[in-house]
């Protein structure tokens, strides 16, 4: 599992202390961590715009310039899924923390069990797009984020999992993979194909055209139903992003 986590606190010793606890948690559980440290809300927001979204953010409230609560409000305008954990000396911002849909609120001094609790919760309630598919291939167990899978096809009792820039071959049935993935973003469009709808660019005749140009066949007898389901999925996806 890979996690992008940030710590934002104007006090260096707080940033360092907190990042040690986060690192220790990830190390114990074999989580591949990318940790970014920021000393102000503005610096954090600028960086998120440049370097992409975060999975989790430990955010101080009292900082010079933009406060932690205002930083979270700004962040929420573009990112609804980042788990924001307030870390502060104050107990006065409980209501505001719910307004910005924080996932936890830690009162300083921070203890490692507070960080562990916040991270345990995040990992067990991860957003759909961060979930992984665990498969055994070429002698080892590997986790592939669902968001990286374009489509899966079955050929000669083997499953070919097409991931960006590579293909993984596993000996698992389609129904087994469908039940492991269990995601509304994946559609069984053909007896031998399971497609990640997030990569569908258009429907051409009897195929899904994916963003990388691949054509994934749709079962002819089901074309209308699949087209309707795809339109409704698109609508729901747009609705949930509002």
């Amino acid at each position: 599992m890979n996690l992008n986590i940030a710590v934002c606190d104007d006090l260096k010793e707080e940033r360092v202390g907190l990042s040690r606890m986060v690192r220790a948690y990830c190390q114990e559980r074999g989580i591949d961590l990318r940790l970014r440290l920021y000393s102000s809300g503005r610096e954090l927001l600028d960086s998120v715009e440049r370097s992409g979204p975060l999975n989790m953010l430990f955010l101080d409230i009292y900082m010079p310039g933009l406060s932690g609560v205002d930083t979270a409000r700004e962040l929420r305008k573009t990112d609804k899924s980042c788990a924001v954990v307030f870390v502060t000396t104050s107990t006065d911002h409980g209501l505001e923390s719910y307004e910005v849909e924080a996932s936890d609120y830690i009162v300083k001094p921070v203890r490692s069990e507070d960080v562990d609790r916040a991270m345990d919760w995040y990992i067990s309630h991860m957003p759909e797009e961060l979930r992984s598919l665990r498969v055994y291939s070429e002698g080892e167990w590997m986790d592939y984020p669902l968001s990286s899978i374009l489509y899966i096809e079955i050929l000669d009792h083997q499953s070919y999992i097409h991931i960006k820039n590579r293909t993984v071959v596993v000996r698992r049935s389609m129904s087994d993979l469908v039940s492991s993935i269990d995601s509304p973003d994946f559609m069984r469009c053909h007896r031998s194909y399971l497609v990640n709808l997030n990569y569908v660019q258009s429907i051409e005749n009897c195929d899904f055209r994916l963003t990388d140009g691949t054509l994934v066949p749709i079962r002819a007898g089901n074309l209308n139903k699949i087209r309707e389901d795809f339109i409704n999925w698109t609508y729901k996806k747009a609705w949930s992003r509002q």
Partner: peptide
């Protein structure tokens, strides 16, 4: 009491209203 909001995080409610 507004102060109960922070303690409520242990139950992870979808929201807290005063």
């Amino acid at each position: 009491a507004e102060g109960k909001a922070i303690g409520s995080y242990s139950m992870h409610p979808a929201d807290f209203l005063k």
